[in-house]
């Protein structure tokens, strides 16, 4: 949802660059996705009936072809110098490069939660998630963030799982909470 106003201001603050080559990666991704959708679509048994003369195959195949067409059009657009403006925002500073270390740490904390949530339960995995992501984002008040994390997980568990009947696992703390 980048906007005209943002775009212009972003352009001014950003150092001018040559063509954005990474966009070809997007073209490749779209082409691959299109191929995969077509292959998957052709693998579906072609079942038609009087109530459904089209069958389940047509739409995936059309969509796959469209993806391939768009990948090609996008490549042309990129070759002619087109590029999309990266989204600006309150906390976004586009004048420096991407901070991949932070992103990877975030993804790590996220995966830890996804893997552990069933066994350990939301209270523990959620605490790890909050503490880990806050750490990744540069928080260095280890104890304070741990307290906030525990408080948040406990509050959400009691309020949502027990109070409102939302599905959150208790995990190893089953019977204690």
């Amino acid at each position: 949802m980048s906007t005209h106003v943002d775009e212009r201001s972003a352009e001014r603050t950003r150092p001018p660059r040559g063509g954005d080559r990474a966009q070809y990666g997007v073209c490749a991704f779209l082409a691959l996705l299109g191929t995969a959708v077509i292959v998957d679509g052709l693998g579906i048994p072609h079942i038609t009936s009087s109530t459904d003369p089209v069958g389940p195959r047509a739409v995936p195949v059309i969509l796959g072809v469209l993806l391939l067409v768009v990948a090609a059009l996008y490549a042309v657009d990129v070759a002619r110098g087109g590029r999309g403006e990266p989204e600006a925002g309150e906390d976004v500073d586009l004048s420096t490069g991407s901070d991949w270390r932070t992103v990877l740490l975030l993804v790590g904390a996220f995966v830890v939660n996804a893997v552990l949530i069933e066994q350990l339960g939301w209270v523990i995995s959620g605490t790890l998630l909050f503490w880990g992501t806050a750490f990744a984002l540069g928080n260095r008040h280890y104890v304070r963030s741990l307290l906030i994390a525990v408080a948040l997980s406990l509050t959400t568990f009691y309020a949502f799982a027990i109070g409102l009947g939302v599905n959150l696992p208790a995990g190893v703390l089953q019977g204690i909470l």
Binding site: F110, A114, V115, W122, F130, T133, N139
Partner: peptide, 28 residues
């Protein structure tokens, strides 16, 4: 503080997505 803000967003996002079907696959 921004670390808490975005940690909180990810925290609630995970909670909400898991709560839809109660399956870890949704988190991935």
């Amino acid at each position: 503080p921004r670390p808490y803000l975005y940690a909180g967003i990810l925290f609630f996002a995970s909670m909400g997505a898991y709560a839809v079907n109660a399956q870890p696959l949704d988190l991935f």
